[in-house]
């Protein structure tokens, strides 16, 4: 568990970072909190020749309001997310989910940018970002572009990021006032990735679900939006039959791997339960 050798760079601006990345090519990797990358380097599953540390770039940090969006700088740590009142008030699900990531030590270092850019289906933020309708700003030598979270994930550790691009911020539309949300995550212990997890953001009108989105973590090689499951609950009061239908629709798109968390059948089964529980809890919180 000893990483190979690499050279270390600490640019002071996004432009410098992008330039370094394009100059150094494939062998260079951005380094954020290092809590996904460094463990992989220790196992020599990742062997970058150059690390471009983004900690020197002040512009990548912080949370601000822009119109109806919260814009979160890529280098904002999970700890800073938890400390933000804006986040806790405007989108409590983000606060709730960040609290379920690992432990305080990991959260002091781990960043939102690293979490969403990593492409690990076990990361909690991606499915959440998809269900909140977030977009990612990507900057490369050719300029900046915005990509919807829902279009970003292509496979395990495989994303829409082009070589030489950096994810600079995440823009999240503030959910409607009175919305309800919940993140249900089943894990074996603190510090574990989800056996299965579900994010639900919904609004209610007259006791019935008016809008709903459902995101799923770690039940497929990418995070998932469970659109059929979400559709199934619109217009209902989340009666038992509907919940069953929604869970079944969600389970239908899951394809988790069997691992020490359990066999495929179990992980899908509890995935469905996480959907059911998140729906019920979100509805109870909606006004």
């Amino acid at each position: 568990m000893i990483p190979g050798s690499f050279s270390y760079h600490r640019p002071a601006s996004v432009a410098d970072a992008v330039k370094l990345l394009s100059d150094l090519g494939e062998d260079a990797r951005p380094l954020a909190g290092g809590h996904s990358l460094v463990p992989m380097m220790k196992l020599r599953l990742a062997t970058p020749a150059h690390l471009i540390d983004l900690h020197g770039i002040a512009a990548l940090r912080g949370i601000s309001r822009s119109g109806n969006n919260l814009v979160i700088g890529a280098m904002t740590t999970q700890h800073e997310l938890l400390a933000s009142e804006d986040v806790a008030k405007a989108m409590p699900i983000l606060h709730e989910a960040a609290l379920l990531i690992a432990d305080p030590q990991v959260r002091y270092r781990g960043t939102i940018g690293g979490n969403v850019a990593n492409g690990d289906p076990g990361n909690d933020m991606p499915a959440l970002m998809m269900s909140l309708g977030a977009t990612y700003r990507l900057e490369g030598s050719g300029g900046a572009r915005d990509v919807a979270a829902a279009d970003f994930y292509q496979g395990a550790y495989f994303t829409a990021l082009e070589p030489g691009e950096i994810l600079t911020s995440v823009s999240v539309p503030v959910p409607a006032a009175g919305h309800g949300s919940a993140y249900e995550k089943l894990k074996r212990k603190v510090g574990d990735y989800a056996t299965a997890a579900a994010a639900v953001v919904l609004t209610m009108a007259g006791g019935k679900v008016a809008t709903c989105s459902i995101g799923l973590t770690n039940v497929h090689e990418t995070p998932l939006l469970a659109t059929d499951a979400a559709k199934a609950v619109i217009g209902t009061s989340l009666d038992a039959a509907t919940l069953k239908k929604a869970a079944a629709a969600a389970e239908a798109i899951m394809a988790p791997a069997a691992d020490a968390r359990g066999p495929v059948e179990y992980r899908k089964h509890v995935g469905g339960i996480m959907v059911t529980r998140a729906l019920q809890r979100a509805a109870a919180k909606a006004k």
Binding site: K189, V190, D192, D259
Partner: peptide, 16 residues
């Protein structure tokens, strides 16, 4: 051997 780290080899924390 499929349980080579504390991710999969259950080592409870104070929370559990």
């Amino acid at each position: 051997v499929v349980t080579g780290s504390f991710m999969d080899f259950f080592m409870p924390t104070a929370v559990e």
